[in-house]
């Protein structure tokens, strides 16, 4: 094992431990104060049934959903940044958030949510897929080889279109629907159930493996498609696979937790500042770091003003921005 490789595995191990620790912390603390004994009792299946319900059915799935969504967003962000060779790329850049939000608002506006708790996530997921299909369709129609600049523009244009759709639906629906839509668009992990976690993991974990298998191709794509091609990459195949997989992960995340910003943009940068830009390290570490970050952010969102829950976007911005600036300063010293 080379020293660099050794360091990489140390970092993976450390962050892996951090994920477990953060999940345990998120299970230990919540908006209702429980003692360690009560939480342990609940986990071992002996304690008070209410405590068991809170710990096993509310806190644990919620923390695990944060792992899946946070990790997935960071992974998708790192991938899109490499493919688009744009440090400002984030998972929603290809119009995904717009499509998902439009579908969600439409579902709320038409009163379709009454059919069941699965309707809203499913609609958001479908909306995200429609947006992706539109963006890819527009980009391919313009340039058959899927030029990333065209792709970015198509993303912006399709996103703007969906913003229009949202505005139209909101203008035509009643005030309560508007309020529900606004709350949803701010993003929340409150809908976490074991079923959601399972669905999320089925999307995110295989997707993560596919992307990690493409790590070397992504290294090359990040320095240019022509160079990547000269260094043995099937550029079109890698581009389509990686964009498709990253978009799917983002779409699944949007369906389960709404639009959560910041994680997908900043976590990959923070990891790059610490371990460099090689995707073999960047992708797994971004997943773990994104997971830890979102688990802790959600914990703060639940606990800070309990029983009132602050929107998670507030926490990611208030905690994430200073943390990132600190890291940026340290890396330039």
């Amino acid at each position: 094992m080379s020293p660099a490789g050794g360091r990489q595995w140390t970092a993976v191990l450390l962050l892996g431990v951090a994920v477990v620790a953060s999940v345990l912390t998120a299970v230990r603390f919540g908006s209702v104060p429980l003692s360690s004994a009560q939480v342990l009792g609940a986990l071992s299946g002996t304690g008070d049934p209410i405590h068991r319900e809170i710990v096993v059915q509310l806190r644990l799935p919620r923390a695990l959903l944060a792992v899946v969504v946070g990790g997935g967003l960071a992974l998708a962000g790192a991938t899109l940044q490499a493919l688009l060779r744009n440090p400002l790329a984030e998972p929603y850049i290809l119009g995904i958030s717009g499509g998902a939000a439009a579908a969600a608002v439409l579902t709320l506006g038409l009163g379709l949510v009454a059919a069941g708790s699965w309707v809203l996530p499913a609609a958001a997921f479908v909306g995200a897929l429609v947006a992706i299909a539109l963006v890819f369709g527009v980009a391919t129609a313009v340039d058959h080889s899927l030029d990333v600049r065209v792709l970015l523009l198509a993303g912006v244009v399709v996103g703007t279109f969906f913003t229009g759709v949202i505005a139209l639906v909101l203008a035509l629906s009643d005030a309560p629907a508007v309020r529900g839509a606004m709350l949803w668009m701010m993003g929340s992990l409150g809908g976490a159930q074991w079923r959601t976690v399972l669905v999320g993991a089925t999307y995110t974990l295989p997707a993560g493996l596919v992307l990690i298998a493409l790590a070397r191709s992504l290294d090359l794509m990040a320095i240019g498609e022509e160079t990547a091609s000269f260094l043995g990459t099937d550029v079109e195949r890698v581009k389509r696979t990686a964009l498709g997989v990253a978009s799917l992960v983002t779409a699944a995340g949007v369906g389960m937790a709404g639009v959560i910003g910041f994680v997908g943009l900043i976590v990959p940068h923070a990891v790059r500042l610490s371990v460099g830009s090689a995707h073999r390290k960047l992708l797994p570490l971004s997943f773990l770091a994104g997971a830890v970050f979102l688990v802790l952010a959600d914990l703060i969102a639940r606990v800070a003003l309990a029983p009132t829950e602050i929107p998670i976007g507030v926490v990611t911005a208030f905690v994430g921005v200073p943390l990132f600036l600190l890291l940026l300063r340290r890396s330039h010293q």
């Binding site: 490499a82 440090p87 160079t227 460099g276 830009s277």
Partner: peptide, 9 residues
């Protein structure tokens, strides 16, 4: 044609 958008060593 080569980009250096990200800091590799």
């Amino acid at each position: 044609n080569e980009a250096t958008a990200f800091p590799v060593t």
